[in-house]
Design a protein around this nucleic acid. Structure first.
Lengths: 341, 341
DNA sequence: TTGTAAGCGTTATCAT
DNA sequence: ATGATAACGCTTACAA
């Protein structure tokens, strides 16, 4: 139904090759011919068949975004939507398309990834927040498809973009220290993810830097869900912290609820800091002091980086790019002070 | 680098056709041959090149999800992420892939849609919440690619899945009526979208059904953002409503803030209902009474429906499918009663 | 049951 | 500057 190159060539009275040259803006085609061909293209509504083109060029102009199973359940938290917004925007700017793979169970992830990675549909892949010991990234690496990870990954060869989680956590904790707190607890995220590790590390470093001992009873691991934040807070209660650094806003909300449930007030009895600066942080009462990270930019940087790699010659040899975007403390009400840091 | 059909054939000592038959599970291939071929496939790690396959079958096993520019700014609200989760899950189950197109400006949308629609990459398209007078849906229709809309669309030929917005709005308003309110205002959503129209219609019908006149001064249009909810509430204040039905949770939050700013308490001075039951609804204080819709199911139903259409013969002729999913009132604290309806 | 060969719509090489 | 022609990796009549 839609006209093919062949037809356009016939209508314009030239060969396929010439039309192809015109379409791809090659030099060495006479101005007059070019115009004639464009005219036919316009009139006939010709659109190149990208599938046929991909078959010969070995490029699809499609990049994959894979969101691993472990984080799909928190997909609705504004983190991933914002990453996607950034990523699609960058794709639009560069005439690429984005194929989204979201997994809800490990088997799907395993099977579909294998299939999709090796099927030839993808020029490159972005993996968001995988577990450090997941086979996902090694699998992609092995497939030979260029990869960018969102979230630090220790592999020598893996390019990534991340936000400064250590620095952000540091700022959060230092803020609490400056307000006079010593018994500062933390609700860590999944320690199987680099975000989880790094935010905990920032907590440790900040404490140490101020000569405050790091105590195990003040550290509890959650999994970034509200429920886990609530449970973690309950487990923290016996240690009676005067301040809590929750490593994301959602867990901070959970902690807040747990605190309320036992009659403790934020910030009067316990100060609370979150991480992410999701919309919910400014809506909750008291408004949450938190650490802002440039989520949307992480998404767009990830595809920019990926496309860079794709279009640069010999992309295997160069050392991995590692981009760390800055974070920023946002002071609101949940620490009981409007001290600006 | 990866082996081709040809190579597998050579290794197995059969012809390309035979390998193709095995891969595609055709009948009429001897059991012994089949096993031999599978063996080679396994050992060589052969994966069919889907691009080459698509070129001949004219099927890519990819469906597009397009989120129009008008709604991208509220993309982070859990509505779209949840739709995506449902949609990708359904895709996974059916061995389809999902190509995501998110637009941040009208030009991109126009240009990219035209290009992608006619380029041959998509077997079908899902359009989420377009404006009623947008050219998007007509464009897709004209391209001949099977389409499902998320959100009602008046076109005779357009298949859609939607939630029962009229019914949901009705329930919300009726709840307020039963609590004794007469001066019930509404903050409508964009009236250029069917969601906006329908929720307003439900409000009207419920009022009328209870013999309460519908007054213009009690109706203000927002655009589903928090800011617009706040502004709308301010404009509503002179009419001194005793209850407000905000047509989504986000605008309800905006209204809440506006109310607080002038010293009015919810629910004591003004009762408030939202729509969507997004996570924020249960976190805010007071917890928001709202209308729940099965967002994730809308996403999965949309792709199921689309795939149905794709695989059913002569899909142009049959009348459009119109699926309306039920909504449900969730009573919390913002109306000052725990009356169950 | 299996193989041969044509063809899908491009791009790319090589003549002319 | 332009045109034949051979790929690209697969499916699918049609033949054997």
């Amino acid at each position: 139904m839609p006209p093919t190159l062949e037809e356009v060539a016939r209508l314009a009275g030239v060969s396929r090759s010439t039309v192809s040259r015109v379409v791809n803006d090659h030099p060495n085609v006479r101005e007059g011919t070019k115009e004639r061909v464009w005219e036919v293209i316009r009139k006939s509504g010709y659109q190149p068949n990208v599938v046929a083109r991909s078959l010969v060029t070995n490029r699809t102009q499609i990049v994959g975004m894979v969101i691993p199973e472990v984080v799909t359940k928190i997909f609705a938290e504004p983190f991933f939507p914002l990453v996607l917004r950034g990523a699609t925007e960058a794709c639009n700017n560069h005439h690429y398309q984005l194929l989204l793979s979201l997994f809800t169970n490990p088997e799907d992830q395993e099977e579909i990834c294998q299939r999709v990675l090796r099927s030839g549909y993808l020029d490159g892949v972005i993996v968001a927040s995988s577990l450090l010991d997941d086979s996902l990234i090694p699998d992609v690496l092995r497939s030979g498809i260029p990869l960018v990870s969102i979230g630090r990954h220790p592999g020598q060869q893996v390019h990534y973009v991340d936000s400064d989680n250590i620095g952000g956590a540091w700022m959060a904790v230092e803020h609490l220290v400056r307000l006079g707190h010593h018994r500062i607890a933390t609700i860590a995220g999944r320690l199987g993810m680099s975000v989880g590790q790094d935010r905990l590390e920032g907590y440790r470093q900040a404490l140490l830097a101020h000569g405050i001992p790091v105590k195990d009873e003040l550290i509890v691991e959650g999994d970034f869900t509200e429920r886990s934040g609530m449970i973690a807070m309950q487990r923290l209660l016996p240690a009676s912290p005067t301040a809590v650094f929750a490593t994301n806003d959602v867990m901070a909300i959970g902690a807040l609820k747990a605190l309320r449930a036992v009659g403790l007030k934020v910030p009067q009895d316990v100060a609370l800091v979150g991480f992410d600066d999701t919309p919910i942080a400014s809506v909750v009462e008291p408004a949450l002091t938190t650490v802002r990270q440039p989520i949307e930019r992480m998404g767009s940087m990830a595809v920019e980086l990926l496309l860079d790699i794709l279009t640069s010659p010999s992309h295997d040899l160069a050392p991995a790019h590692r981009i760390i975007l800055p974070t920023e403390l946002v002071v609101r009400e949940s620490c009981g002070s409007d001290l600006q840091v």
